[in-house]
Simulated assay, not measured.
Amino acid sequence: MKRTDRSRAQILDAADAAFRQSGFDGTSVEEIATRAGLTRKTVYNLFRSKEDIALSLIARAEAADTGYRARIAANEDAVALMEMVLIDSAHWCIANPALARLALAPRERPSAHPPPDRPSFQGLVRDTVVLGQQQGRIRQDEPAGFMALILLAVYGQAMLSALPGATVSEAEIRKIVRLVVEGIGAGN
């Protein structure tokens, strides 16, 4: 591993620990640098800001989707897989509330197209919707990207509401998936 990559990893690990202990607002770049064993200047040479560090941590968590991708490739039941993805995400959100708030309420509005240059949670959800469409479990008359955004909007709001008290049950997540997949109106 190159020195720069090693320093970035040290900063992300230190920030992860600091955010869990003190929250995003309660953590300074100086504290992250100290925990990483680096200078504040080194941190700013590798990241533009504390928010940039947090967004990189979120991206690192999003990149850990290979197990889900293998399940998509194995053509597992898309609805059950969607439940698993969102339940696992809910556990991550509750364990990382400071980062979860940034991930669930980003400054930039998400587009119907996930970032093509890196793995993303939105892309994983979209690809799971595509699988469900191929299996005939999810309606095919709307684009998968748009449907993923709707599901993530409902899920994101539920998680933001749950974060202060850190309560969300697996049954609630399953209900969100069921309601979005089945729809709330009468079918024609």
Rank of each mutant, 00 (worst) to 15 (best):
A98S: 14
R71S: 14
G136D: 04
R107S: 03
I32C: 05
D117Y: 11
A162C: 10
S89Q: 12
Q133F: 12
A54M: 02
A98W: 11
R8W: 13
Q133K: 11
M1I: 08
M1W: 03
V43K: 01
A36E: 07
A17V: 06
A18G: 03
N96F: 01
E142C: 10
A54V: 02
A186L: 11
R60Q: 14
E51Q: 10
D52P: 03
A166I: 03
S111T: 14
A162T: 11
L131W: 05
D88F: 05
E31Y: 00
R35G: 03
A171L: 14
G185C: 12
A80N: 07
P143V: 10
K50R: 14
S161A: 15
P97A: 01
P115L: 04
R6M: 12
L86D: 02
A73P: 03
F24K: 05
S120C: 15
I138T: 15
A162R: 12
A153R: 11
S7Y: 13
E170N: 15
G123Q: 02
G136C: 07
S22M: 09
L102I: 10
T4L: 07
R109E: 14
G165E: 09
I176H: 05
R35T: 08
D25T: 14
R48K: 13
V130N: 11
Y155M: 06
L99G: 00
A15F: 01
T27H: 00
A186D: 13
E51N: 01
E172M: 02
E172A: 13
P164T: 10
